[in-house]
Write a protein that binds this DNA or RNA. Structure first.
Length: 488
RNA sequence: GCCCCCUUCGUCUAGCGGCCCAGGACAUCGCCCUUUCAAGGCGGCGGCGCGGGUCCGAAUCCCGCAGGGGGCGCCA
């Protein structure tokens, strides 16, 4: 085999959004090309006029971009390359490696239904196989509808060395004369793929296991065309929890869904790469650059993988953690603005710099981008009231008067703190003697007043970020709320 | 019905004849740390589908079985 510069491709059909399996296929092809300094091309297989959609095509492109998988060439649309497929089909026709078939879909469908009843498999009966060339041409010229079928060579077999499965063999006689050009002039999948992979100089094809049975057909076409076939690698499927091929009924399978759910590309790429591929027995944290560096076709797995969102979440948190705060906060900011409409952000806090300080105090807590809402919604608005349950719990634990007094005393102390820093605030409160309450209790009251909840980032950092005025206002407000309530 | 692929903890996986009475990670459970929640540390639970071979020795090789998955369109 000649030494050629590696060329891989991702060739989705625009009939829906980019799903998990497709995303992984794209990733693998991208990594393989980049690893070997080759090109990664994008081809849109839109030969099904009934099911294509412009939106799907756009969605796929945008998901690919979201993942950071930039293609070097394309996108090429098969629907705009019809003359090319026609040319190759004519060539096969003239060499008697393909023939016109005038059988109606109705006739074949009836036949197929019959066979299915007693057995279940069906193959074209080759009725038009031996049609006289003159007659065939005449019927075609007269406007009769026809398809072009590939003539499977009698006997023989095809075999190829798969990158993940090793040598695979297929007997020709299990194949029937499949259609390569439909009656509407469009090429069928197996034909267009072979023609394009050849035309575009594709050297390696990495795709899902579900394509192994298509491979012999494509190989036969390469053979008939007299051109070299690319190498293949059939990676195992990605399964749903029920261990069947991942599909819409498994729920969230589109990449777009994950973006909206607050996952970041670094995690998606990292996790997907590990479904059907691994480096060794311990390394599992990878950036895209590291994947390109370490990727190897010899490390493909052979067993189907069940998609586990829990592990994806873990990777999301891991990547978020290692990210520079500026980058992370920008992701959080953009996500919040776009996908968390219920997060109330007062105009004066709608600012990237401010988000950066809030994201910073949220620390390692974010698992998904949207978690910022749970941990810090109270940092973005001053207009909230304290939940009755929280107020009642405080009254129950401390008594209304004592709690209010403690809060007011803390306010007084905080008001007088010289340097308003997390460390100073903490040390002052740690040493304060207030209502005989220990530090932990004081912190609980503080947290309640500042965040209106019982869970929050480090409370002194919250206070520092809120600033003296906002903090004091909240502490006094809670005290007042308790007093008013108990007075009733 | 035919063809093809696959089979290690619940899940993702390492393992390619002795280093494995099977290692890592997620999940889960417990403990520690601790101002809450996370994070982190430590520990527990948990697996080689079954049956035959081959070999001094098998998760690793061979055969059979069972199970699972994929494909068999004028869909891709």
């Amino acid at each position: 085999m000649s030494e050629r510069r590696v060329v891989t491709r991702f060739a989705p059909s625009p009939t829906g959004y980019l799903h998990i399996g497709g995303a992984r296929t794209a990733l693998f092809n991208y990594l393989y090309a980049k690893k070997y300094g080759g090109r990664f091309i994008l081809r849109i297989e839109d030969t099904d006029t009934a099911r294509n959609s412009e939106e799907a095509s756009e969605a796929i492109l945008s998901s690919l971009k979201w993942m950071g998988l930039d293609w070097d060439d394309g996108p090429f649309y098969q629907s705009r390359r019809l003359d090319i497929y026609r040319k190759y089909a004519e060539k096969l026709l003239s060499e008697k490696k393909a023939y016109r078939c005038f059988c109606t879909a109705e006739r074949l469908e009836a036949q197929r239904a019959g066979k299915r009843a007693d057995g279940g498999f069906w193959a074209y009966d080759r009725l038009c196989h031996s049609l006289d060339e003159a007659e065939s041409r005449a019927r075609a010229d007269s406007g009769e509808k026809y398809v072009i079928r590939f003539s499977i060579p009698d006997g023989g077999a095809v075999s190829f060395n798969d990158m993940v499965h090793g040598v695979l063999n297929f007997q020709n006689d299990v194949l029937d004369d499949f259609i390569i050009i439909k009656s509407d002039g469009m090429p069928t999948y197996n034909f267009a793929v072979a023609v394009d992979d050849h035309e575009m100089g594709v050297t390696h094809v990495i795709r899902g296991d579900d394509h192994v049975s298509n491979t012999p057909k494509q190989l036969l076409i390469f053979g008939a065309l007299g051109v070299e076939a690319p190498g293949y690698g059939h990676v195992p499927m990605i399964l749903g929890q029920d261990k069947t091929k991942l599909s819409k009924r498994h729920g969230a399978t589109s990449l777009g869904w994950y973006e909206e759910a607050g996952f970041i590309r670094e995690a998606a790429v990292n996790y997907l790469a590990l479904l059907g591929w691994s480096l060794d027995d311990k390394t599992e944290f990878f950036t895209l650059a590291e994947l390109i560096d370490k990727f190897s076709e010899s490390r493909f797995g052979r067993t189907p993988a069940v998609f586990d969102i829990k592990k994806l979440e873990y990777f999301n948190q891991s990547h978020l953690k290692t990210m520079e705060i500026g980058v992370r906060s920008e992701l959080v900011y953009n996500y919040a603005k776009k996908y968390i409409p219920e997060l109330k952000i007062d105009e004066k806090y709608d600012d990237l710099e401010y988000f950066k300080s809030v994201t910073a105090i949220a620390g390692d807590r974010l698992r998904l981008l949207g978690d910022i809402k749970n941990y810090a919604w109270f940092m973005f608005t001053d207009e909230f009231s304290y939940p009755a349950e929280l107020r009642d719990k405080i009254i129950k634990d401390h008594g209304a008067e004592a709690a209010a007094r403690a809060l007011r005393q803390m306010a007084e102390i905080i008001e007088g703190v010289g340097e308003f820093s997390p460390a100073d605030l903490e040390s002052v409160l740690r040493n304060a003697k207030i209502e005989n309450l220990n530090f932990s209790k004081l912190v609980f009251l503080l947290r309640s007043s500042l965040s209106a909840q019982t869970v929050s980032p480090g409370i002194f950092e919250v206070m520092y970020t809120l600033g003296r005025a906002r903090s004091l206002e909240r502490i006094k407000r809670l005290a007042a709320a308790i007093e008013v309530h108990s007075a009733q």
